[in-house]
Nucleic acid binder design. Structure first.
Length: 802
DNA sequence: AGCACGCCGACT
DNA sequence: GTCGGCGTGCTC
């Protein structure tokens, strides 16, 4: 007898351990560790992951595994082990960890149905509900307001039974394929016999005579410009046949990727790549920090490292931040490695995502390029892991399990004994500090590919503009520079940092700001729909005409949305042709690319946008980059505010003068003297690093201290305060004396969706027992969490302090 | 999480 | 006496 240890699909901390199940004889040979199974659990039937197969169990009455859901395991042994580690590290549940590693469609779907076992004894209303059928769904019973007492009675008497159904949502896409039903020469004979006026049929047949292979019906129709009907006629004549085949959904079906070959490496690229190659060759786990300025050719270093890995028969994972995962980026990898590449990003439909994942699972690809969760690609012979733009915050998952892709990468690198490469022009302070300490190997690429200089940066003091009577949001110098580019038929990128900034509405008479009734936040004005929306819940109302407090009609918007910037810009420079890119204009699928194409084809001279235009864009004729308001980000309540500002400014500046024409950057700010602004304008990362490290040291922030953020929320403010206070007291008592506990303090946004939010923060150097203590605290509040709607979120090394 | 079991008040 | 409300505790 063999026993399977199963992690079951019940998201509760009481269930957060394995359950033993007997493996029925018929499954003994089939069942492998890492497969999904359906199992009886109490009165129900649910899904579970087989974690381990052992000979015996201590449990007295074992139930049997009911069915196997997969032919091949969905989790490798490595991922099973990694999932456990991740759950422990992030204090989350095993089931959550495993599900985070898999495409969504592999999550089980549960259904209940009621089966009728006898016809006679049923009550009239139940009989009516069945209406002659043997099964009805439980949903149907509920929708028709079925009587639970009757149901329960019938169940007890055995007139009916309830079946629990576990379904996997995964589906394969099927496509219709057309093939010849007879040999080629027979088709030729048939061709002559076709009626003279059956032009289209002739054409289709001719196609097969010259291309005697199977083809997808859709493509055939396209090629011969015909209809399904014509093909159907040929099928009926017995000349062709159709089959339904599983196909992969191809998100890049209509894209041609021009194939590229390895470029000659520059001296500095060669210096950077050699240690990586050495590490690949020697199966040596080492973390590299590739610090390369924008345009220094980091991607080529990645590509040629991967090439080496593939030659050795191994696989590669490349992580790219979500917003940088544009077709341009994909093109570089598909161009070099062709069909060996799978792409995973959030723009894919769940089905497409599953198909890409399947290609990895079946080892049909060697390289995966993707956003955060691609770090879990089920490769088994990893040769390298690359994280591009490693400082990006999107590598941290902001929901359970709150993992950071970098930490997962290091774990997998260690497991596979392969290098991990972290690349960035502006590395995270922690990473650079580690590189300096020798924990990571630092690789520097300090000059740009074509020996071009970074574009000069001019800082404009907006206070002076105001003193000079300029009340617009564009400095005189910026306006002049833009006009100048338009004249020369060159292009401009205008960057508006909207974080911490949004268009709110205020009454000029009484100063009342329109706020969300359930969140502690001002509503944002959306001009396109003429509505006021809350960005934290889905509350929205039509734009107000008069103040609710004083009935004044003096209502004014404040803040600067991209819409407003566009309008004011057109007032100052009426001849400007502007492409605006923000969440509103890029929501629809494909809108992103469309807007970029317009700009690319020079049908516009100004690209105006938010965060999303800071990265990766590369246009030949962009010679001016304008940053409209640096300050909003600097002043966020976040110890990383200055670092994020520095990163962003450096990145945006890199958009100008990437080709033949020289570029220029203009930064407008009210804090001209701030070191992040000053040093970003000089492209001096090293100096910035030293300065910021000083700050972190004196304020006890990372990398000198680690942080843990505990966030408590509940609809009752007193309750939240009380719990948070208790938690900090417990932490103080049980953590070592070296740890500091900040708080409880109200979160920067005190109320979201009618829930009050308080937090406390642990600053520490070394607390090996921390996780255990926090687990106990969570245990202590278990009942409150389960029954009283209390929420306690724990975030180790947080990136988002809101 | 879901579901059964069990204990107590309300009502035929 | 029985129905149904919810609090409690278990699920290999």
């Amino acid at each position: 007898m063999s026993v399977a240890k199963v992690v079951v699909d019940v998201p509760s901390s009481q269930i957060n351990h394995t359950f033993d199940y007997k493996i029925p004889e018929k499954y003994e040979a089939l069942l492998k560790v890492g497969m999904r199974v359906t199992i009886p659990f109490g009165p129900r039937k649910i899904m579970g992951f087989v974690i381990e197969i052992v000979p015996t169990s201590d449990v007295k009455r074992l139930k049997e595994i009911e069915a196997i859901m997969d032919i091949t395991p969905v989790l490798t042994k490595e991922l099973l082990q990694l999932g456990k580690w991740m759950a422990d590290q992030t204090v989350s549940l095993y089931i959550q960890a495993y599900q985070a590693m898999l495409p969504r469609v592999l999550k089980a779907k549960y259904k209940k149905e009621i089966e009728k076992l006898t016809d006679i004894e049923l009550t009239a209303s139940l009989k009516q509900m069945f209406a002659g059928r043997d099964f009805i769904t439980f949903e149907e019973f509920e929708e028709n307001k079925g009587n639970y007492a009757e149901l329960l009675h019938a169940l007890k008497e055995g007139y009916i039974q309830i079946n629990y159904i576990v379904e996997s949502k995964e589906t394969s896409k099927k496509a219709l394929f057309i093939d010849m039903a007879k040999e080629q020469h027979l088709l030729e004979e048939a061709f002559i016999d076709l009626p003279k006026n059956a032009k289209k049929q002739q054409e289709v047949l001719q196609y097969f005579i010259s291309n005697p292979t199977e083809i997808e019906q859709k493509k055939l129709i396209e090629k011969c410009k015909t209809t399904p009907h014509t093909i159907q006629l040929l099928i009926e004549k017995g000349l062709l046949k159709k089959t339904l085949k599983k196909v992969y959904r191809d998100p890049f079906a209509n894209t041609n990727f021009q194939s590229t070959t390895a470029l000659q490496l520059s001296e500095q690229q060669r210096k950077a790549i050699e240690p990586i190659w050495k590490s690949i060759d020697n199966n040596y786990n080492e973390t590299f920090l590739l610090h390369g300025v924008t345009g220094s050719g980091k991607t080529e270093v990645y590509l040629q490292s991967i090439e080496k890995v593939i030659k050795l028969g191994k696989e590669a994972i490349v992580l790219v931040p979500e917003i940088a995962l544009t077709p341009q980026m994909v093109k570089r990898f598909k161009g070099r490695f062709g069909d060996d590449v799978a792409v995973l990003h959030s723009g894919l439909s769940p089905g497409e995502r599953f198909d890409e994942w399947t290609k990895i699972q079946k080892k049909e690809v060697k390289v995966v390029v993707g956003a955060r969760s691609a770090i879990f690609a089920p490769f088994e012979k990893l040769g390298i892991i690359i994280i591009d733009e490693e400082h990006e915050t999107s590598y941290k998952q902001e929901e359970q399990p709150r993992y950071h892709a970098r930490e997962i990468a290091k774990y997998r690198g260690e497991y596979h004994q392969c290098p991990v490469v972290l690349g960035s022009a502006t590395p995270l302070l922690e990473s650079f500090a580690r590189a300096k300490k020798g924990v990571y190997t630092l690789l520097e690429m300090t000059s740009r590919m074509n020996e071009q200089q970074m574009p000069p940066v001019k800082i404009i003091d907006m206070r002076e503009e105001l003193h000079a009577g300029n009340r617009t949001m564009f400095s005189r110098e910026l306006v002049q520079a833009i006009k100048n580019r338009i004249e020369r038929n060159e292009q401009v990128v205008l960057f508006l940092n909207r974080r911490g900034h949004s268009t709110f509405v205020m009454c000029r008479e009484c100063g009342d700001v329109v706020k969300c009734p359930s969140c502690d936040i001002a509503l944002t004005y959306h001009k396109s729909s003429y509505q006021l929306k809350c960005h934290y819940c889905d509350y929205q109302i039509p734009m107000i005409q008069e103040c609710k407090e004083c009935q004044s009609k003096q209502i004014q918007y404040f803040g600067t949305g991209t819409q407003k910037v566009e309008e004011s810009l057109l007032e100052v420079i009426p001849e400007a042709k502007i492409v605006r890119m923000d969440v509103d204009t890029t929501r629809r699928k494909g809108a992103h690319e469309k807007l970029l194409t317009i700009f690319q084809e020079k049908r516009a001279n100004i690209l105006l946008g938010t965060q999303m235009i800071a990265k990766g864009l590369d246009f030949e004729d962009v010679t001016l980059v304008g940053v409209l308001a640096v300050d909003s980000m600097l002043n966020l309540p976040d110890f990383r505010a200055s670092e994020k500002t520095f990163q962003l400014l450096t990145q945006v500046s890199g958009r100008a003068g990437r080709h033949k024409l020289p570029g220029e950057v203009i930064m407008q700010t009210y804090s001209t003297e701030h070191y992040a602004v000053q040093l970003a304008s000089q492209y001096n990362y090293e100096q910035y690093f030293l300065h910021e490290m000083q700050m972190r040291k004196s304020f006890h922030y990372p990398p000198y201290y680690y942080l843990t953020l505990i966030n408590v929320s509940h609809q009752d403010e007193l309750k939240v305060q009380e719990v948070t206070k208790m938690i900090s007291r417990l932490l103080l008592k049980h953590l070592s004396g070296d740890a500091t506990i900040l708080g409880p303090t109200p979160s920067p946004i005190v109320r979201i969706n009618n829930r009050y939010r308080y937090q406390c923060m642990i600053k520490y150097k070394d607390e090996p027992n921390q996780r255990e203590i926090i687990r106990k605290i969570l245990q202590y509040y278990h009942d409150d969490i389960q029954k009283n709607n209390l929420m306690i979120q724990v975030d180790f090394e947080p990136y988002q302090l809101m």
